[in-house]
């Protein structure tokens, strides 16, 4: 019995060392699904809403607008779609694990990319509110000697965000892989007496993993996506308020 826990499968290799992996393909699938969902929900918009589709679309948009307004205040016009994009792509990507596909969020590169985007936004808003001088002066506080530690603190924000999401989702992947392997071995031992190929079918894999995936895939996915978006909002609103 051997358990192989690896990263994403490499599907194509392009020049310049670019690799197209399962992560990318699955993310494109997710994006396609979200885009089609958007198109479906907004296909027949009327001033007087007819049918559930428009109600759902309006509910989502209103929820995002209200969420941003409540947590960040007015004046962040582009943030509702950005946060919605972040939440939807991370949620749908994580939920791909339910379908047995490789969740893109279990790849550190993906979460690191998103965290870098958030980090750039945080820096942008910090520069915008305090100016370059104010920002670097803020790093020197309370003592100039502590500047390196403040710098580390700045850079730990995206890293901790990336690792939080990656850690939670990949833990689910690792544990479900281990459980599947263990159950395969266990059912091999228990059903040894069955004739022929019937003995090779891992019967025990039927029930138990569902309960585990309920926690690791659904609960953890939703919670971590929400936490990622909430932290983004908090960091950016904190960065955009003058100290």
């Amino acid at each position: 019995m051997s358990v192989d826990i690896t990263g994403a499968e490499i599907l194509f290799r392009l020049p310049l060392g670019i690799v197209i992996t399962e992560t990318q393909v699955n993310m494109w699938i997710v994006m396609l699904v979200i885009a089609m969902l958007c198109k479906y929900l907004t296909s027949n918009l009327k001033i007087k809403p007819e049918g559930k589709r428009q109600v759902i679309a309006e509910y989502i948009v209103n929820l995002a607008n209200k969420f941003i307004k409540d947590n960040m205040g007015p004046g962040f016009k582009n943030f509702p779609p950005f946060i919605a994009a972040l939440f939807s792509i991370s949620l749908f990507s994580s939920l791909l694990g339910l379908l047995g596909m490789y969740p893109p969020t279990a790849d550190l590169n993906t979460t690191l990319g998103w965290a870098v985007v958030v980090f750039i936004l945080i820096l942008y808003y910090k520069f915008k509110t305090n100016g370059f001088g104010g920002y670097f002066k803020g790093l020197m506080e309370p003592l100039p000697i502590l500047a390196p530690f403040n710098l580390i603190g700045e850079f730990s924000t995206p890293i901790s965000m990336a690792i939080r999401l990656f850690g939670n989702i990949s833990t689910g992947v690792v544990i479900s892989a281990l459980v599947y392997a263990a159950l395969a071995w266990l059912s091999g031992v228990v059903f040894q007496w069955l004739p022929g190929t019937l003995a090779n079918i891992p019967y025990l894999q039927l029930g138990l993993p569902a309960i585990l995936s309920l926690y690791f895939d659904i609960f953890s996915s939703v919670l971590q996506s929400f936490v990622f978006c909430m932290l983004t909002i908090l960091y950016i609103s904190q960065a955009s308020t003058k100290e």
């Binding site: 850690g167 919670l223 971590q224 936490v227 908090l234």
Partner: peptide
């Protein structure tokens, strides 16, 4: 939940 998520970070580092 936010606090828990942040507090979890160290555990995730060790993981």
């Amino acid at each position: 939940l936010m606090g828990c998520a942040v507090a979890e970070t160290t555990g995730l580092y060790s993981l």
